Simulated assay, not measured.
Amino acid sequence: MTLLLDGEQILGKKMKVTGNLRIEAADMSGQTSNTQTAHKGFKPKTLAVSLMIPFVDQVQLRTIMRLAEATAGGGQLKMYRIVNDTAAAFGIREVQFSEGISAREDDTLAAWLVQFTLSEKESNPEKVEQRRATNGVSSQSAPGQAVGGSGGAVGAGGEVGNGQELSGFEKTLKKLDDYLAPKT
């Protein structure tokens, strides 16, 4: 099995790469025995890698540690282009190290059993979600006129700015309003 990260080959014996896709769902049953769930999206795919590195090849373990500790601009984890059959089958092109690395000594062989996880970066569901158009807010209006502005201004003959005549009661209120608060 071949595993290349940015063209650098990860070497080890008995290498196994396991692909995972986590699908988030929430239980909607409450206190009932209903089986309905709410789909909450796809999480990034991951590749769990396990391999054995003999003690004499400790340079290979150092290489993995160097790649895992590498950072890009701004202190973010470095992203790697991956070449691997399982990654290709899962549609994974770019990964970064996640969830740590473990290397424990084998009980019978003079070797480390190394495990690490690579997490997909810029996944297809993530790209689709970014391209999806957001629901815009539509303006709402109610019947009638807007308060304030020139739409409700009353003209000299007791007319509203749009040519609508005031009723007798409205004319009386207008006179009272003008008397109490004269316009300057």
Rank of each mutant, 00 (worst) to 15 (best):
I53M: 03
I53W: 01
I53A: 02
I53Y: 01
P54C: 04
P54H: 05
V56L: 07
D57A: 13
Q58A: 07
V59I: 08
V59K: 11
Q60Y: 05
L61F: 13
L61G: 03
R62A: 14
T63C: 06
I64D: 01
M65E: 12
L67Q: 10
A70C: 08
A70H: 03
A72V: 09
G73W: 01
G74F: 05
G75L: 09
L77P: 08
L77R: 15
K78N: 12
Y80D: 00
R81L: 11
R81Y: 07
V83H: 06
V83R: 05
N84I: 12
N84L: 06
N84W: 11
N84Q: 12
N84K: 04
D85Q: 05
D85N: 11
T86D: 02
T86R: 05
T86I: 15
T86C: 07
A88Y: 02
A89M: 07
F90W: 15
G91E: 13
R93L: 10
R93T: 08
R93N: 13
E94N: 09
V95R: 00
V95E: 00
V95I: 14
S98Y: 05
G100S: 12
A103L: 14
D106I: 00
D106K: 13
T108D: 13
T108M: 06
T108E: 09
L109S: 09
L109A: 05
A110E: 14
L113Y: 04
L113P: 08
V114A: 11
V114H: 00
Q115S: 15
F116I: 14
L118R: 00
S119R: 15
S119Y: 04
S119E: 14
E120F: 00
E120D: 07
E120M: 08
E120C: 03
E122R: 13
E122M: 08
S123D: 11
S123L: 00
S123F: 09
N124R: 14
N124Q: 08
N124W: 10
K127N: 04
K127T: 00
Q130H: 04
Q130L: 08
R131S: 12
R131L: 14
R131V: 13
N135F: 06
G136Q: 14
G136K: 13
G136C: 06
S138G: 13
S138C: 04
S138R: 12
S139W: 03
Q140C: 06
S141V: 10
S141D: 08
S141L: 05
P143G: 07
G144Q: 00
